[in-house]
Amino acid sequence: SIEEEIKKAEEAKEKGKTFIHGDFVATTEELLDELLKRLRKKL
């Protein structure tokens, strides 16, 4: 679910890890923020 993806992305951000969502690879905090923004729009 979208909620689960958001939670996983937030955890990755806290730990400074890379998060992959489909073909979107978030390797930096900026990219994770962008991904979180996109996911929240889908809610």
Rank of each mutant, 00 (worst) to 15 (best):
K15M: 12
I20V: 12
R40F: 13
E10A: 03
G16S: 05
A9C: 14
K15P: 01
A12V: 02
L39D: 01
R40A: 08
L36G: 00
E34T: 04
A26Q: 02
R40T: 09
K8W: 09
E4K: 07
T27L: 10
K17M: 14
E29D: 10
K13Y: 10
A26K: 02
T28C: 12
T28Y: 08
E3N: 06
K7W: 06
R38A: 14
L36M: 02
E29S: 13
E11R: 04
G16Q: 05
I2E: 02
E5I: 15
K37M: 12
D23V: 12
L39N: 00
T18M: 10
T28N: 10
D33H: 06
T28R: 02
D33G: 06
G16T: 04
L39R: 00
K15C: 15
E3Y: 11
K15H: 13
L32S: 00
A9L: 13
E3T: 09
E30T: 07
K17F: 15
E11L: 09
T28E: 03
V25G: 04
H21P: 04
A12L: 04
K17R: 10
A12Y: 04
K41I: 08
L36P: 00
L43Y: 07
E30A: 12
L43E: 02
I20P: 02
S1A: 11
T18R: 01
H21K: 02
L31A: 11
E29R: 14
R40I: 12
A26H: 02
R38V: 14
K37S: 10
T27Q: 05
L31S: 05
L43C: 14
E34F: 09
K17G: 13
L35T: 00
L32W: 07
R40W: 13
K42M: 15
E5R: 05
K41W: 08
K7P: 04
T18I: 13
D23E: 09
L31Y: 04
K8L: 12
K37Y: 09
V25L: 09
A9K: 02
T27S: 14
E29P: 15
I20K: 06
E14P: 01
I6R: 02
E3L: 14
I6H: 01
H21L: 12
S1E: 10
I20D: 01
K15D: 05
K13V: 03
K42V: 09
S1D: 11
S1V: 07
L35D: 00
E34C: 00
I2V: 11
E11W: 09
S1P: 07
K42N: 06
I20R: 07
I2D: 03
F19M: 06
E10F: 07
E3K: 09
V25H: 13
K13C: 13
I2A: 04
A26M: 08
G22S: 05
E3Q: 11
E34P: 00
A9E: 02
K13E: 02
A12Q: 03
E14T: 08
H21I: 11
T18A: 13
I6M: 03
F24S: 03
E3C: 15
E14R: 14
L35H: 01
I20M: 06
E29K: 14
R38F: 15
E5S: 09
E14F: 07
K7V: 06
E14G: 09
A9M: 06
L32K: 01
L43A: 03
V25D: 03
D33F: 08
I6W: 02
H21Q: 04
H21T: 05
K42I: 14
G22K: 04
K8I: 05
E29C: 15
I2R: 01
E14M: 12
L39F: 02
L31E: 15
A26V: 08
K42S: 09
D23M: 11
